[in-house]
């Protein structure tokens, strides 16, 4: 009975979830693609969007994969795989699983071998994380309507809307930048320190340099690769620094 976590049923469930995610995504891509053609967006631009997005996604996706593996020792590989393909992220799923096991008197550091425990973990994860999907069908349209009306009123508010749109995006970026500059979260999350700041700055420098090459030197083909390359470059810097700096310097954190 101990292989129920990686049994045929779990793989079948994973297959179903993955199929759903892919079909849903394709549906929206096809609808948007057709509409874009109708309103006269060049197909080249759309193709470039696909290429850019695939490249952009690789590094974060590999790090999500790593979190699947982190949870695999206790929960088997399939459940974390399912959970991180829909809604889930490491923090959510770890906390949910921990709480479920805690309520049963177990911990996440040992393998779950009981179907009852496992089922409790699954239900906790699912019920805990589904709320956005209940809110969205009710409020998404309303939120967009309110926003659209505010933007459309006149030229001044539409210019303001544009700036506030950019400011919203920057707000999200800023949270993670600040995290890399000053946060000291619970392990295993990394605290801000020499390494995180170096990686942050390297990514900025690489982006600016590559962008300059692509735009000013007219290497058009480079454009979709600018961000992915800068990311990989900065991640490479992290590897180099850990290899060549003394551990106490590389491991220096601000607090």
């Amino acid at each position: 009975m101990s292989d129920f976590k990686t049994g045929a049923l779990m793989y079948a469930l994973a297959g179903g979830v993955i199929l759903f995610v892919i079909v849903q995504s394709l549906f929206f891509i096809v609808k948007s693609w057709k509409r874009a053609k109708e309103i006269g967006v060049e197909p080249e631009k759309l193709k470039q969007t696909v290429v850019t997005s695939v490249l952009f996604t690789i590094a974060p996706a590999v790090s999500i994969l790593a979190t699947v593996l982190a949870l695999a020792s206790a929960l088997g590989i399939v459940l974390p795989w399912i959970r991180l393909s829909v809604i889930g992220n490491l923090a959510y799923e770890t906390v949910a699983a921990n709480n479920a096991l805690d309520a049963l008197g177990g911990t996440l550091s040992e393998e779950v071998t009981d179907t009852q425990q496992f089922s409790t973990v699954m239900w906790t994860m699912t019920i805990g994380s589904c709320f956005p999907l209940i809110l969205l069908p009710i409020f998404c349209k309303k939120i967009h309507k309110v926003m659209g009306n505010a933007v459309k009123k006149n030229e001044k508010t539409s210019a303001l809307g544009e700036i506030l749109g950019a400011a919203g995006m920057i707000g999200i970026v800023a949270a993670f930048v600040a995290k890399s500059l000053a946060a000291a979260p619970d392990a295993p999350d990394i605290s801000a320190g020499l390494m995180s700041v170096s990686v942050l700055v390297s990514a900025m420098v690489f982006t600016i340099a590559l962008d300059w090459l692509a735009r000013k030197k007219g290497i058009k083909k480079l454009e979709p690769f600018v961000l992915p390359l800068a990311m990989f470059g900065a991640m490479g810097i992290a590897v180099l620094l850990t290899q060549f700096l003394p551990p106490d310097i590389a491991g220096f954190t601000f607090r």
Partner: peptide
């Protein structure tokens, strides 16, 4: 260090 790498790059473009 995916997070600082990703958001450093994005910050630069903004």
């Amino acid at each position: 260090y995916v997070v600082p790498a990703l958001f450093g790059a994005l910050l630069a473009s903004y």
